[in-house]
Design a protein around this nucleic acid. Structure first.
Lengths: 232, 232
DNA sequence: AATTCGGTATTTGCATGCAAAAGTAACTTA
DNA sequence: TAAGTTACTTTTGCATGCAAATACCGAATT
């Protein structure tokens, strides 16, 4: 049961950062956080070092600061995810996946479809992440899987980064429809062992997030994922 | 002058790992390393945590162990580097780089050529790394640059991972000649803003390393880069 | 008003103490 | 012989003390 203290500190801090509760540029003081969380500075420091390794914090000569991202970096991070996820599905397609896995993929896409019909945004979000994870794992490359997961580490870069707030807008509905088309065609490409097509579709799929970022910036108050992004 | 202690511990340990002085599977004990390096366990722990973040160590419930890699992971790591470097040069090509940068690239390739003629393996190695870094930086994407650098972190995955030991073999000479052809054509592709071609060439360029791995395995004793690779 | 300059209050980097966890190894039992 | 069992040793995770570095803040100067 009893979680290691540095782990709970890590989870707690990370969730505060990605949820936008702490915004980019904020200075994190180990001594302050220690009393706040009721532990000593040792496990806090360990958590801060790990978060620096994840790229969420930067360390200057006196302590850690929450990193800020230029808008350009947000788009680059999304492209990086598309590149890595694309490489993963390409590998899966060229390697070939058995029928049982293909059936699971089809079922996932159907469930995503249903979530859209039900307007179940949270459910869609969860299913979408599972679907992306499943596709990535089919690459059967632990190195690539790890790097794809790593590319999700910024709150605006993951495959389900902008789920909330706009389910009523026409633009968002369209992006879900187009995303579903991508999903179906990616499964088809994997099924037909068309690696290059699978790559291109997945890369394009990630590009959808670029529009979501632009839309989120217009209603910034409803987009806590942007708490790390510079200049309003 | 006075380097932080955790930094020197980090550099020292990392160099011991990548040089093969410490082999995969070795357990690293903070308390032991502390007396060995004449400091307390605090800065040692910090270095170990960072090395875990780099993927060189794994942490089980009682301490850190030097990671071991299956041969398949070695090849996957090389492919990952090719993918990321390829994406970087593609971006550079499509964005367009000015003549001054192109001149520098041409000069680098000429210097590499000269190093081959002189049979200056160490010099080639250094120039090659500089050349790859320069190409990567031309992508003008800090996110991508950082990920490319990160992909170099395993001692067998970087662009100059297998420099030594075989400069006399015909195979190694051929691989240098082919590599130079890649270098020249990559610069040409960037110059002509042919992004897809630049990507394909760079990806293929990394594939050269696969043969170098196979060759190195046959003379394992002369290849300290393989100290982290499982099963002889 | 913006800078510069002291002096004070924090904070960090590192060392170290300690209880609990994990490793180690000789011995017992099936 | 293999699989516990027990007693002993080492190591870790965390708390904390301390000196040096850094931040903070108001006063003096331009």
């Amino acid at each position: 049961m009893s979680e290691l203290q540095w782990k709970s500190a890590l989870y707690h801090l990370r969730s505060q950062i990605v949820s936008g509760e702490l915004t980019g540029g904020t200075k994190l003081r180990a001594s302050h956080l220690a009393v706040e969380m009721g532990v000593s500075r040792t496990p806090i420091s360990e958590a801060l070092i790990k978060l620096e390794g994840e790229g969420l914090l930067v360390r200057d000569k006196s302590g850690f600061t929450i990193r800020s991202f230029a808008l350009r970096e947000v788009h680059d991070a999304i492209d990086l995810r598309g590149l890595l996820e694309g490489a993963a599905v390409q590998k899966a397609a060229e390697r070939g996946v058995d029928q049982a896995e293909l059936n699971k993929l089809h079922r996932s896409v159907d469930e995503l479809e249903q979530a859209i019909v039900d307007d179940d945004v949270a459910g869609y979000d969860q299913l979408n992440l599972t679907f992306h994870n499943h596709l990535t794992e089919l690459s059967d490359s632990d190195i690539l899987i790890a790097e794809v997961q790593r590319s999700y580490r910024f709150p605006f870069a993951g495959p389900s980064a902008f789920p909330t707030g706009h389910s009523d807008s026409a633009r968002f509905r369209n992006s879900l429809i187009i995303g579903q088309q991508h999903h179906r065609q990616i499964v088809a490409a994997v099924s037909c062992r068309e690696g290059a097509r699978a790559f291109a579709l997945m890369y394009e799929h990630a590009k959808l997030a670029h529009d979501n970022v632009r839309a989120a910036i217009k209603n910034r108050e409803t987009a806590p994922q942007l708490a790390l992004v510079k200049n309003a």
